[in-house]
């Protein structure tokens, strides 16, 4: 199936707006679409205004921003590894970022509390970014291979994820009861703790990363031909690699910082986009951003409605949907090219 990229983009906008409106109605205190609409325009009007503006809207926007980041980073990292099965999670970015944040929360809880409030909000993505950057760099170094096959790299990612899981296990073993709840939140992922501050930080990082990622669409396309071909076309491959890894660590770090691990968005989204519009990064990068936002919005909506009035961690929803899809991808790769 092919779809013109323009059609896809034009479909995404109204679909996202409509989904957003519906998502705003979902929650323990049922609001109608009309009620939500009214509350949106009158933020000060009663309980509904409070619910929409202080609870649901930040959550919705955080889900959109995080989804956009995960979709975009997934597209970047799949392009870098020339493998549609690559995912920020597989490369250790997510677990490295999570481990860094969790370890700080468990072992040095006073550290974050020392900072004044706006800085504290910024400190989390910064720590997650450093954790993600260390993780990817380690995985890249361990997985270096002269045969240009991504196998070693993926094995290095698996090994790193094991070590990170052990680190998280250690953290949870040493954690107090209260910390344990926080930790569960991190490892399962949730948009429940969304604040306007978190939305602001994530949105700013999203804009920055999107602007820096856009000029990479040409070298990433050239890289799909192979590293030598990319260089023969005039691009500097090591610099490209460094940039992509840096952007992914920052993007996934920002996503992880406020919501914990939300897997499979980064894997599934670029893949579906490629199925629809082909592998050209000029289209894949922006559409993965948009589609990632939409899909994450849906996942969060599902997480909140399936066992309403309680809610599931959104990471469980994405993993439940993404796992089977991953198996389908592996099966597909055997029969046809991607």
């Amino acid at each position: 199936m092919t779809l013109s990229a323009r059609t896809f983009a034009w479909l995404l906008v109204p679909l996202t707006l409509m989904s957003a409106l519906i998502a705003l109605t979902a929650g323990p205190s049922g609001l109608s679409v009309a009620g939500v609409w009214q509350a949106l325009w009158q933020p000060d009007a009663g309980v509904n205004g409070l619910i929409v503006w202080q609870l649901r809207l930040p959550r919705l926007l955080l889900a959109l921003c995080v989804g956009a980041l995960l979709g975009l980073c997934g597209a970047l990292i799949q392009g870098l590894f020339r493998n549609p099965l690559a995912e920020p999670g597989l490369m250790g970015v997510s677990s490295g970022a999570t481990l860094a944040v969790v370890a700080t929360l468990i072992f040095a809880p006073g550290l974050l509390a020392l900072l004044p409030n706006p800085l504290e909000t910024l400190a989390r993505p910064a720590i997650a970014f450093i954790g993600g950057l260390i993780a990817t760099t380690l995985v890249m170094l361990l997985g270096r291979d002269n045969t240009h096959s991504p196998l070693r790299l993926i094995l290095a990612g698996v090994a790193f994820n094991m070590v990170a899981a052990a680190g998280l296990g250690l953290c949870s073993y040493l954690a107090s009861n209260e910390q344990l709840r926080t930790l569960t939140f991190w490892t399962l992922g949730s948009f429940g703790a969304a604040t306007w501050q978190a939305v602001g930080v994530t949105a700013a990082i999203l804009v920055g990363i999107a602007l820096l990622a856009w000029p990479l669409h040409k070298p990433l396309n050239a890289l799909l031909l192979g590293e030598s071909e990319c260089r023969h076309l005039g691009f500097q491959v090591p610099r490209l690699k460094r940039r992509v890894i840096f952007l992914c660590a920052a993007g996934v770090g920002a996503a992880v910082a406020f919501t914990g691990i939300i897997g499979f968005i980064g894997l599934v989204v670029p893949h579906m986009v490629r199925l629809l519009v082909g592998p050209d990064h000029r289209r894949v990068l922006p559409l993965s951003l948009g589609f990632g936002a939409l899909l994450t919005l849906w996942a969060d909506w599902l997480a909140r409605t399936v066992i309403s009035p309680a809610e599931l961690p959104v990471g469980i929803v994405t993993a439940l949907l993404g796992g089977p899809f991953f198996i389908y991808l592996i099966h597909r790769q055997r029969s046809t090219g991607l």
Partner: peptide, 30 residues
């Protein structure tokens, strides 16, 4: 250098489903 020197390697490993015209167009990147 890429505007003056083009190289055709022995093997190609393009994993992604580009169209023929798109692959040829990559040659115009420099």
């Amino acid at each position: 250098r890429a505007r003056l020197l083009a190289v055709l390697p022995q093997q190609h490993s393009l994993n992604f489903a580009f169209r023929v015209a798109e692959v040829v167009a990559l040659g115009r990147y420099p």
